[in-house]
Amino acid sequence: MSATPLLQIARLTKSFGSNQVLKSVDLDVTAGEVVTVIGPSGGGKTTLLRCVNFLEAYDGGSIKIDGREVGYVDNAGGRKRGEVDLAAMRAETGMVFQSFNLFPHLTAEQNVMLGLQRVRKKPLKEAQEIARHWLDRVGLAHKTKSLPYELSGGQQQRVGIARAVAMDPKILLLDEITSALDPELVNEVLDVVRKLATDGMTMLIVTHEIAFARDASHRIIFMTDGSVSAHGKPDELMAQVASNERLRNFLSRFSAATH
């Protein structure tokens, strides 16, 4: 049974000035799938992710979530969505950032509650319960009243995940969420992501953690120079190493990829 994919990216193009960063990318993600994008820096992975929640405005092609175009009004030929419309669409996608981007003036709990109260319009008590539930799920039940500067990098990132997931998004976007962490803190974050995957969360992940990608993803996409160079289930992708030189070169750097 193949339902319409939750996320449909078709012929996506994006340029920054004269530099074309995305050259016609196609990608589908079905509900419950975990798709990981890997590849060398500058290949367009992060830009792709940021187009999905319209933090970057894509130039051509289409991105649809549950059939609705993300940044542009359906059937209106190129007209961008208004502020309110766009915000509503963004509430359907959750993003976790490389540099955490927690709100420093709010406690962990308040960070998670903000969207629940102001966007989902939940009353205080309910928002608090949901926030506490998710902070507990990421292992930070004892840190709800802490301010971000009092938390370690790994803890902050886990709060970031809780903040995104608490909004009950259709798809979670993870943008190199462990790249800024000390090595010993990476695992606690990856464990949380693994748990989410097991619970059926749809995720599009950009990462350098090849081992994690292999173990936790349903599919891996390999991007270089703005287009998809190889893709498939983890074993399928590994099988392409022999024939795909760039893939081989890229992965050779991670030969001893154990953390």
């Binding site: 933090l55 502020e83 915000a87 963004r90 509430a91 709100f103 969207g115 102001r118 995104a164 909004m167």
Partner: peptide, 20 residues
């Protein structure tokens, strides 16, 4: 990143200014 995080949880412009 603050503005981006605020956008990504679905806050509109006025809310982003006011709360973040």
């Amino acid at each position: 990143g603050q503005m981006e995080a605020a956008k990504s949880i679905g806050l509109i412009f006025g809310q982003r200014l006011r709360y973040v």
